[in-house]
Design a binder for these strands. Sequence first.
RNA 1: GGACACGUAGCUCAGUUGGUUAGAGCGUUUCCUUGACAUGGAAAAGGUCAGAGGUUCGAGUCCUCUCGCGUCCACCA
Length: 854
Amino acid sequence: MREISKQFDFKEREGAIYKLWEESGFFNPDNIESAKRYCNILPPPNANGELHIGHASGYTVMDIFGRFERMNGKKVLLLPGKDHAGIQTQVVFERKLKEERGITRQMLGREKFYQECYDFCINRSDYMRSQEKRIGISADWSREKFTLDPDGLKTALETFVKMYKDGLVYKGHRIINWCSRCGTALSDVEVEHKEREGKLYHIKYPVKDSKEFVVVATTRPETMLGDTAVAVNPKDKRYLGFIGQTLVLPLQNREIPVIADRRIDMEFGTGAVKITPAHDMLDWQIGKDHKLPEIQVIDEKAEITLEGGSYAGLGVSEARAKIITDLAGQGLLEKEEALVNNVSVCERCKTVIEPLVSKQWFVKVDGEKYSLKKKTLELIKSGKVEVYPENFKKILIQWLGNLQDWCISRQIWWGPRFPVWYRGEETYVGLEAPKGDDWIQDENTFDTWFSSGQWPYTTLGYPNGKDYKNFYPTDTMITGRDLLFFWAARMLMLGQYRTGKTPFRNLYFTGLVRDKEGHKFSKSRGNGIDPLEIIEKFGADALRLSLVMDISPGQDSRLFEEKIESFRNFVTKLWNIFRYCEQSDVEFALVEKISKRDLKTLADKWIVSQLEDVVKKVSEHMKDKNISLAQDALRKFTWDSFADWYLEINKMEKNSKVLGYVLDRILKLWHPFTPFVTEEIYGILNSGSNVLMMAKWPKSEKKFIDAKAQTDFSDLQDLVAKIRNMRANYHIDPTELLEGYAKAEIEKEIIGKLARVRIGTGGVKKKMIQVSTRLRTLRLDIAKSIDVAKETASIRKEIANLENLIAKNEGMLKNKKFTAGAPTEVILSAKNRLEEYKEKARVQKELEKNLSRL
RNA sequence: GGACACGUAGCUCAGUUGGUUAGAGCGUUUCCUUGACAUGGAAAAGGUCAGAGGUUCGAGUCCUCUCGCGUCCACCA
């Protein structure tokens, strides 16, 4: 007999097992013969760092479904890749340049910077790939993609050209969100709104040729340098007389009108609002409607421009301080109020966003010829894409409804450049530079999400690639709920537009992984959990289980070591089940098929019946994409039924055929969740002839479902539990062998071993106490240890409880509305239950009587 | 201001067309070195399923309101 260690040596074995899978070739769907297909394009992580626990969580879900589908005989493609992640990578790489070489990107120049950044990403990708493999992802690495790969990129840029021709993109002079630190425009979703303590300044604007003032309230006094009007609500009686008058803008001595606009809230501040069309979203709208001039007083570095007169060159916050001082000096600052207001910050670097008017490229989301917005709404509402959890559908629909044009140009260097060329007044849009000299290419690069939003079909070689034809639309997209708008919505929009089809049929969201206190993992907080460290310490299988067990889609979860540890313990359990089986028989082997004749004892019938039940449940839960319920059912069966009961009984009633059969099936059922340990066990027992990864997913065999065995065995369990319970209640030494007597035939050996009772030798004694279940009766010689009053009380309590239940069920069954309205199954089960309670009550009453004789 | 979640055992969470006496893991208490496993086993304690109404034969599950916590959206200057 071979020597098998007490625990699965995951550290030693995981690498080799992964290699075995890779060498089998079955990560590549081309090597699988099947007409059925399953495809999941894996979300590409940013190629600038390393894997974090969020990636691990998503990948685990993807791999579980991938392995499940593969075992169900499908050609499975999990297509991995990496994202160039424009702004974020540029930030990371610039920091690296500064730290390591003390240089800026300007010192390198655009081309060199791009090349070095590219190499950096490729390098990081290699590292990240090795991390992904550690988690056990069964992805086809031969198809791995990068968002800047020439073929896919070409497709993505073609989309832009097509959109240009369709009038769905335009270059416009509009107000946009500007991050002065990243030096680029941002789309609306890249801006976060944070509540901050601020101040509301009340500033007096003198009326021209008058001693009167209009007092405006603002949180951003520095923008007053660019004011071109003051607006009030036309219904606001306080200001009726001022509408149409001219004010003198303090500090600038510029004359500006008082205008009326319905969008002004009379309740807020003073009801009079300074209008700065160049630096505020609403003001820009109002400025457009009232044809007000735009005066840019803040530049791209968040400094005051020459238009700002004496404040020119100051940073925004310095300017604010100086302006407040100056206004106070002139007696124009009426008061300051504390105020909590929303500040817009850059999603990447948290720098305060400056709204600026700028010339940028936009996607028209609601064009006349084609409306991305409406088509996507139709797609979602039609149910061509299923969303998990379902309520995220509503969020998507609401978001799409409010969608504004999408700014897609970025002023960074890292990323694909716009396929647009200019010569004088001419503009050319196309994949290649036009012929002729003097054409200058647009400086802008694309929003990362413009290319990753096309990921499902650029990776498959749209429009003519074989993979595209075979695998598109893909089956499932699994992504973090934080990417709902950034990515998921854009994939739907662009996929539907470009290919005319939904990019995926199922959209599954994972929640965020948080720490034990519910905080987000973050570098600054220092609470990160490194997936690789966890794998080192507890193994990849334990990590996988802890990331998906007891978790529902879209819902955040918490991860901490004690939790992972308990799943590591489960892996050990699985391993020891195998160890027991191995040692139970010198010729122990896995068994693929058994017949009814192989089921010799009640325990055999029971465990196989339970197993078939679990196969059915797990398969159904997996089809419903309910990983958690699948695992729950499996774990209960494996640990409670198989290990704690069947194995114990099997020690007395050997049946290695049943053992081999059950083990074979649970290895298969567990494989998607814990691929490493199951593959290892399978390999040892199967002499490595096949990989478990390609084994067929079990089918539930109805012929083994045996309701009678289930009830009978659970009655036996009840009896054992009762005896154990008595021992514990009366502090009877657990090692003490009790004398017992049974009139009818009973599982002497099992009860003897599990409850430590020697049955049948001494015959019935007067002082024996009766222990009964519905189907079994036993007399035990523990009467002298029993506290009759205590025992009677507890029995009476149970009788009362049962009578309650009997009354409840009888009432139910007498109720005509119930018998008329409830489904037959429910009625039937109520009837059965009632009989069961009655029987139990009878048994208890008999016990009570027996007890009274002691 | 609008929307969406969440509130179930001390802690972390399951509970999917409303239908067994509401579950698990961890933790706690008592006991067990029984040759698969102490990363284990047995027994137990612990819940008016946030609160109040309603619908129903029947509600943790559906509806309304309240309270609490959170997230997202929005042009609160």
